[in-house]
Amino acid sequence: MDTESILTLDGVYAGYGKMTILHGTNFTVPRNAITTVIGPNGAGKSTAFKTIFGMVRANAGRIAFEGADITNLPPRALIERGIVYVPQGRNIFPQLSVRHNLELGGVAAPAQLDLAGRMEQALDRFPVLRRKANQQASTLSGGEQKMLEIARSLLLEPKLMLVDEPSIGLSPLLVSELFSLLNDIKARGVTVLMIEQNAKRALESSDYGIVLELGQTRMFDRADKLLADPRVGQLFLGGTMKTTKGAA
């Protein structure tokens, strides 16, 4: 690809205990774009994100962000460099208030940052969250909870956002809203790397796509080319694979 890349994985091996899931994974993520990772269940997509974000150890290989080596850095150091991560499934703290949840996005903020100002901006951008700021977060609907997670991850104005299956459990209308929100986020200069089971819809709203299988990159191309590729169509879009699944 001729575009500038923001993140590069180079021969990364990682797994859980003795079980290796990523077998020398390579891929690059273009800057200022939305890139979607697709692949069958258990391919290691979530593991790849956790490895990038320092929550699973890379046993070999190199991960670089903006040219600098970030392999096995702890989450906090990555957030300070401008990477945020929204894991698969529910990630709010249900017992705490919506506001408290949102504030937690600023844990790694530098001392001089005006967090109160950022909180106000976030609440302006997501009026639902302002209306329900003092409610317990468990009272939000599934879609609102996802909004809260995304708003929280944007609090420190990251450069790269890793989102693992954000559309799970959302109604079709909300899925469209979510993807257009991700495009807004991109327009503000944030690079988005997401995992999606909903491959067709996700690729339609993305710039690039990566196909991951058995812990290795099978394909990387522009999203429209992948959508037109018969192999992808057969594998992921043609119905031979489940395109939806329950929450993790």
């Binding site: 702890p74 989450p75 990630n91 844990v107 903020a109």
Partner: peptide, 23 residues
């Protein structure tokens, strides 16, 4: 304080707290 807010996050769910950059 934002710093103190994180104590509760660790109690409620350490893994989620970790992914928000709480050491």
């Amino acid at each position: 304080s934002p710093w103190g807010r994180a104590f509760v996050a660790v109690r409620e769910n350490p893994v989620r707290a970790l992914s928000l950059g709480v050491d």
